[in-house]
Protein backbone atom coordinates (compact mmCIF):
# COMPACT_ATOMS: atom_id res chain seq x y z
CA UNK A 1 0.00 0.00 0.00
CA UNK A 2 0.93 3.63 -0.09
CA UNK A 3 -0.09 6.64 1.93
CA UNK A 4 -2.18 9.64 0.83
CA UNK A 5 -1.95 8.82 -2.90
CA UNK A 6 -2.37 5.80 -5.17
CA UNK A 7 -3.26 4.82 -8.74
CA UNK A 8 -6.97 5.43 -8.11
CA UNK A 9 -6.57 9.01 -6.90
CA UNK A 10 -8.10 11.43 -9.39
CA UNK A 11 -6.27 14.73 -9.40
CA UNK A 12 -7.23 18.22 -10.59
CA UNK A 13 -4.39 20.60 -11.50
CA UNK A 14 -5.04 24.20 -10.46
CA UNK A 15 -2.79 26.16 -12.79
CA UNK A 16 -2.63 23.52 -15.53
CA UNK A 17 -2.97 26.24 -18.15
CA UNK A 18 0.32 27.87 -17.07
CA UNK A 19 3.64 26.65 -18.50
CA UNK A 20 4.90 25.01 -15.29
CA UNK A 21 1.53 23.43 -14.50
CA UNK A 22 1.23 22.07 -18.00
CA UNK A 23 4.78 20.67 -18.00
CA UNK A 24 4.46 18.80 -14.72
CA UNK A 25 0.79 17.93 -15.27
CA UNK A 26 1.81 16.09 -18.41
CA UNK A 27 4.82 14.44 -16.75
CA UNK A 28 2.62 13.26 -13.87
CA UNK A 29 0.04 11.95 -16.33
CA UNK A 30 2.70 10.06 -18.28
CA UNK A 31 3.83 8.53 -15.01
CA UNK A 32 0.36 7.10 -14.51
CA UNK A 33 -1.30 9.64 -12.26
CA UNK A 34 -4.98 10.16 -13.01
CA UNK A 35 -4.74 13.78 -14.09
CA UNK A 36 -8.43 14.31 -14.81
CA UNK A 37 -8.88 18.07 -15.03
CA UNK A 38 -7.44 21.55 -14.83
CA UNK A 39 -9.06 24.74 -13.63
CA UNK A 40 -9.14 28.29 -14.91
CA UNK A 41 -12.00 30.71 -14.25
CA UNK A 42 -12.00 32.01 -17.83
CA UNK A 43 -11.00 28.95 -19.82
CA UNK A 44 -13.75 26.49 -18.93
CA UNK A 45 -14.63 24.23 -21.85
CA UNK A 46 -11.12 24.27 -23.34
CA UNK A 47 -8.44 21.64 -22.75
CA UNK A 48 -4.71 21.36 -22.17
CA UNK A 49 -3.25 18.47 -24.20
CA UNK A 50 -6.58 16.70 -23.93
CA UNK A 51 -7.08 17.36 -20.22
CA UNK A 52 -10.39 19.26 -19.78
CA UNK A 53 -10.44 22.67 -18.08
CA UNK A 54 -13.24 23.66 -15.72
CA UNK A 55 -14.02 27.06 -14.24
CA UNK A 56 -13.59 25.94 -10.63
CA UNK A 57 -12.41 23.05 -8.50
CA UNK A 58 -16.01 22.37 -7.46
CA UNK A 59 -17.11 22.00 -11.08
CA UNK A 60 -14.11 19.89 -11.98
CA UNK A 61 -14.72 17.62 -9.01
CA UNK A 62 -18.41 17.32 -9.83
CA UNK A 63 -17.61 16.32 -13.40
CA UNK A 64 -14.72 13.94 -12.75
CA UNK A 65 -15.09 12.61 -9.22
CA UNK A 66 -11.63 13.93 -8.33
CA UNK A 67 -10.64 14.01 -4.65
CA UNK A 68 -7.26 15.72 -4.91
CA UNK A 69 -5.73 18.84 -6.41
CA UNK A 70 -2.22 19.95 -7.22
CA UNK A 71 -1.53 23.69 -7.18
CA UNK A 72 0.83 25.38 -9.67
CA UNK A 73 -0.49 28.90 -9.17
CA UNK A 74 1.71 31.97 -8.47
CA UNK A 75 2.18 32.77 -4.76
CA UNK A 76 -0.31 35.65 -4.75
CA UNK A 77 -3.12 33.28 -5.71
CA UNK A 78 -2.23 30.36 -3.45
CA UNK A 79 -4.40 31.28 -0.47
CA UNK A 80 -7.47 31.54 -2.71
CA UNK A 81 -6.59 28.31 -4.49
CA UNK A 82 -6.09 26.32 -1.27
CA UNK A 83 -9.33 27.56 0.25
CA UNK A 84 -11.22 26.91 -2.99
CA UNK A 85 -9.96 23.33 -3.09
CA UNK A 86 -10.83 22.75 0.56
CA UNK A 87 -14.31 24.24 0.13
CA UNK A 88 -14.85 21.90 -2.82
CA UNK A 89 -14.25 18.98 -0.46
CA UNK A 90 -10.84 17.89 -1.69
CA UNK A 91 -9.21 15.28 0.55
CA UNK A 92 -5.69 16.10 -0.61
CA UNK A 93 -4.33 19.48 -1.71
CA UNK A 94 -0.72 19.50 -2.88
CA UNK A 95 0.76 22.98 -3.18
CA UNK A 96 4.02 23.13 -5.13
CA UNK A 97 4.25 26.93 -5.32
CA UNK A 98 7.15 28.53 -3.48
CA UNK A 99 7.39 32.06 -2.11
CA UNK A 100 4.03 32.09 -0.29
CA UNK A 101 4.00 34.65 2.58
CA UNK A 102 4.16 32.98 6.00
CA UNK A 103 1.16 34.99 7.23
CA UNK A 104 -0.92 33.51 4.40
CA UNK A 105 0.27 30.02 5.28
CA UNK A 106 -0.59 30.48 8.94
CA UNK A 107 -4.02 31.78 7.94
CA UNK A 108 -5.07 28.99 5.61
CA UNK A 109 -3.51 26.30 7.79
CA UNK A 110 -5.75 27.34 10.69
CA UNK A 111 -8.74 27.92 8.42
CA UNK A 112 -8.45 24.35 7.14
CA UNK A 113 -8.04 22.93 10.65
CA UNK A 114 -11.19 24.71 11.83
CA UNK A 115 -13.50 24.51 8.84
CA UNK A 116 -12.22 21.76 6.55
CA UNK A 117 -10.71 19.08 8.78
CA UNK A 118 -11.21 16.51 6.02
CA UNK A 119 -8.67 18.24 3.79
CA UNK A 120 -4.99 17.33 3.95
CA UNK A 121 -2.75 20.12 2.68
CA UNK A 122 0.78 19.23 1.58
CA UNK A 123 3.16 22.18 1.21
CA UNK A 124 3.37 24.96 0.11
CA UNK A 125 6.88 25.01 -1.32
CA UNK A 126 7.18 21.24 -1.56
CA UNK A 127 8.07 18.81 -4.36
CA UNK A 128 4.81 16.90 -3.85
CA UNK A 129 4.50 13.19 -3.25
CA UNK A 130 5.05 10.02 -5.19
CA UNK A 131 3.79 6.51 -4.61
CA UNK A 132 6.27 4.83 -6.97
CA UNK A 133 4.68 2.77 -9.72
CA UNK A 134 1.25 4.14 -8.88
CA UNK A 135 1.06 7.91 -9.03
CA UNK A 136 3.23 11.00 -8.87
CA UNK A 137 1.82 14.41 -7.98
CA UNK A 138 4.32 17.26 -8.15
CA UNK A 139 7.81 17.80 -9.49
CA UNK A 140 9.70 14.68 -8.39
CA UNK A 141 11.40 12.82 -11.24
CA UNK A 142 9.43 9.56 -11.27
CA UNK A 143 12.14 7.31 -12.68
CA UNK A 144 14.51 7.77 -9.73
CA UNK A 145 12.10 5.90 -7.44
CA UNK A 146 11.84 2.13 -7.23
CA UNK A 147 8.24 0.95 -6.77
CA UNK A 148 7.09 -1.34 -4.03
CA UNK A 149 8.40 -1.10 -0.52
CA UNK A 150 9.35 -1.53 2.22
CA UNK A 151 10.54 2.04 2.85
CA UNK A 152 8.49 5.21 3.28
CA UNK A 153 10.27 8.56 2.92
CA UNK A 154 9.35 11.89 4.43
CA UNK A 155 11.50 14.94 3.75
CA UNK A 156 11.60 18.68 4.29
CA UNK A 157 14.01 19.33 1.43
CA UNK A 158 13.38 18.94 -2.31
CA UNK A 159 16.74 17.89 -3.76
CA UNK A 160 17.57 15.80 -0.70
CA UNK A 161 14.28 13.97 -1.26
CA UNK A 162 15.44 13.06 -4.75
CA UNK A 163 18.83 12.15 -3.36
CA UNK A 164 17.17 9.81 -0.86
CA UNK A 165 14.99 8.15 -3.51
CA UNK A 166 18.03 7.70 -5.71
CA UNK A 167 20.23 6.29 -2.92
CA UNK A 168 17.56 3.67 -2.24
CA UNK A 169 17.03 2.90 -5.93
CA UNK A 170 20.80 2.35 -6.31
CA UNK A 171 20.59 -0.16 -3.48
CA UNK A 172 17.55 -1.78 -5.12
CA UNK A 173 15.28 -0.78 -2.27
CA UNK A 174 11.66 0.10 -3.09
CA UNK A 175 9.57 2.90 -1.72
CA UNK A 176 5.87 2.83 -0.77
CA UNK A 177 5.38 6.57 -0.76
CA UNK A 178 7.80 9.50 -0.66
CA UNK A 179 6.32 12.68 0.78
CA UNK A 180 8.05 16.04 0.43
CA UNK A 181 6.50 18.21 3.15
CA UNK A 182 8.44 21.34 2.15
CA UNK A 183 10.66 23.67 4.12
CA UNK A 184 8.30 26.59 4.74
CA UNK A 185 7.44 27.92 8.23
CA UNK A 186 3.90 26.49 8.28
CA UNK A 187 3.77 23.26 6.30
CA UNK A 188 0.27 21.83 5.84
CA UNK A 189 1.46 18.30 6.58
CA UNK A 190 4.06 17.62 9.25
CA UNK A 191 6.63 14.91 9.83
CA UNK A 192 4.33 13.51 12.49
CA UNK A 193 1.36 13.26 10.09
CA UNK A 194 3.51 11.20 7.73
CA UNK A 195 5.08 9.07 10.45
CA UNK A 196 1.62 8.24 11.76
CA UNK A 197 0.44 7.23 8.27
CA UNK A 198 3.56 5.14 7.63
CA UNK A 199 3.18 3.42 11.01
CA UNK A 200 -0.37 2.45 9.99
CA UNK A 201 0.56 1.31 6.48
CA UNK A 202 1.20 -2.45 6.43
CA UNK A 203 3.51 -2.31 3.39
CA UNK A 204 5.80 0.28 4.90
CA UNK A 205 8.27 -1.52 7.16
CA UNK A 206 10.78 1.26 7.74
CA UNK A 207 10.93 5.04 7.34
CA UNK A 208 13.61 7.41 6.12
CA UNK A 209 13.25 10.93 7.44
CA UNK A 210 15.18 13.90 6.07
CA UNK A 211 15.17 17.13 8.00
CA UNK A 212 17.03 20.37 8.03
CA UNK A 213 17.96 23.17 10.41
CA UNK A 214 15.41 25.66 11.70
CA UNK A 215 12.18 25.31 13.63
CA UNK A 216 11.44 22.39 15.90
CA UNK A 217 9.60 19.96 13.59
CA UNK A 218 12.34 17.31 13.89
CA UNK A 219 12.40 17.54 17.68
CA UNK A 220 8.62 17.13 17.76
CA UNK A 221 8.91 14.19 15.39
CA UNK A 222 11.53 12.63 17.69
CA UNK A 223 9.14 12.88 20.60
CA UNK A 224 6.41 11.22 18.52
CA UNK A 225 8.78 8.47 17.38
CA UNK A 226 9.77 7.72 20.95
CA UNK A 227 6.16 7.25 22.02
CA UNK A 228 4.35 5.91 18.97
CA UNK A 229 6.59 4.40 16.29
CA UNK A 230 7.45 0.72 16.20
CA UNK A 231 9.00 0.77 12.72
CA UNK A 232 12.73 1.45 12.38
CA UNK A 233 13.84 4.85 11.07
CA UNK A 234 16.98 6.28 9.55
CA UNK A 235 17.51 9.99 9.27
CA UNK A 236 19.67 12.79 8.01
CA UNK A 237 19.58 16.46 9.00
CA UNK A 238 21.07 19.03 6.62
CA UNK A 239 22.80 22.16 7.85
CA UNK A 240 25.22 21.02 10.58
CA UNK A 241 27.64 23.74 9.57
CA UNK A 242 25.18 26.51 8.67
CA UNK A 243 26.06 29.74 10.49
CA UNK A 244 23.45 31.09 12.95
CA UNK A 245 21.06 33.78 11.77
CA UNK A 246 21.69 33.22 8.07
CA UNK A 247 18.88 32.21 5.77
CA UNK A 248 19.95 29.31 3.62
CA UNK A 249 17.61 29.65 0.69
CA UNK A 250 14.57 28.12 2.35
CA UNK A 251 12.41 30.11 4.68
CA UNK A 252 12.77 27.16 7.02
CA UNK A 253 16.49 26.86 6.99
CA UNK A 254 17.57 29.36 9.56
CA UNK A 255 19.00 28.94 13.03
CA UNK A 256 18.25 31.63 15.56
CA UNK A 257 18.96 32.00 19.24
CA UNK A 258 20.72 28.65 19.39
CA UNK A 259 17.44 26.87 18.57
CA UNK A 260 16.81 24.48 15.73
CA UNK A 261 20.43 23.46 15.23
CA UNK A 262 21.20 20.30 13.34
CA UNK A 263 23.04 18.78 16.30
CA UNK A 264 20.07 19.34 18.64
CA UNK A 265 17.80 17.65 16.11
CA UNK A 266 20.19 14.75 15.58
CA UNK A 267 20.53 14.23 19.30
CA UNK A 268 16.76 14.23 19.79
CA UNK A 269 16.31 11.69 17.00
CA UNK A 270 19.10 9.42 18.24
CA UNK A 271 17.60 9.59 21.68
CA UNK A 272 14.34 8.34 20.14
CA UNK A 273 16.13 5.34 18.64
CA UNK A 274 16.54 6.73 15.14
CA UNK A 275 19.72 5.85 13.26
CA UNK A 276 21.15 9.17 12.11
CA UNK A 277 23.60 9.47 9.21
CA UNK A 278 26.14 12.27 8.86
CA UNK A 279 25.32 12.75 5.18
CA UNK A 280 22.61 11.54 2.77
CA UNK A 281 24.71 8.60 1.59
CA UNK A 282 25.28 7.39 5.12
CA UNK A 283 21.55 7.68 5.87
CA UNK A 284 20.93 5.55 2.77
CA UNK A 285 23.45 2.98 3.96
CA UNK A 286 21.84 2.88 7.37
CA UNK A 287 18.48 2.28 5.69
CA UNK A 288 19.97 -0.54 3.58
CA UNK A 289 21.23 -2.06 6.81
CA UNK A 290 17.79 -1.71 8.39
CA UNK A 291 16.07 -3.25 5.35
CA UNK A 292 18.54 -6.15 5.32
CA UNK A 293 17.57 -6.89 8.90
CA UNK A 294 13.79 -6.80 8.36
Amino acid sequence: MSIFLDENTKVIYQGLTGSTGRYYGNLNKEYGTQVVAGTHPKKAGTDVDGIPIYASVAEAAEATGATATCIFIPAAGVQGAVLEAAAAGMELVVCITEGVPAQDEAYFYNKLKAEYPGTRLLGPNCPGLISPGKANVGITAGHIAKPGGPVGIVSRSGTLTYQALYELQQKDIGVTTCVGIGGDPVPGTSFIDCLEAFEADPDTKAVMMIGEIGGSAEEEAAEYIKNHMTKPISSYIAGVTAPPGKKMGHAGAIVSGGKGTASAKMEALEDAGVRVGQNPTEAGELMADIVAGL
Partner: peptide, 23 residues
Protein backbone atom coordinates in the same frame (compact mmCIF):
# COMPACT_ATOMS: atom_id res chain seq x y z
CA UNK B 1 21.09 22.69 -6.82
CA UNK B 2 18.47 22.95 -4.10
CA UNK B 3 18.80 24.51 -0.66
CA UNK B 4 18.89 21.16 1.13
CA UNK B 5 21.60 19.71 -1.10
CA UNK B 6 23.59 22.97 -0.86
CA UNK B 7 23.48 22.82 2.95
CA UNK B 8 24.37 19.17 2.81
CA UNK B 9 27.34 20.02 0.58
CA UNK B 10 28.66 22.48 3.19
CA UNK B 11 28.31 19.75 5.80
CA UNK B 12 30.24 17.22 3.74
CA UNK B 13 33.04 19.71 2.95
CA UNK B 14 33.38 20.24 6.69
CA UNK B 15 33.28 16.54 7.45
CA UNK B 16 36.30 15.90 5.24
CA UNK B 17 38.27 18.64 6.98
CA UNK B 18 37.64 21.57 4.65
CA UNK B 19 35.90 24.87 5.01
CA UNK B 20 33.26 26.18 2.57
CA UNK B 21 33.54 29.70 1.15
CA UNK B 22 29.83 30.04 0.56
CA UNK B 23 26.35 28.60 0.30
Amino acid sequence: NGAGLAMSTLDVVNQVGGSPANF
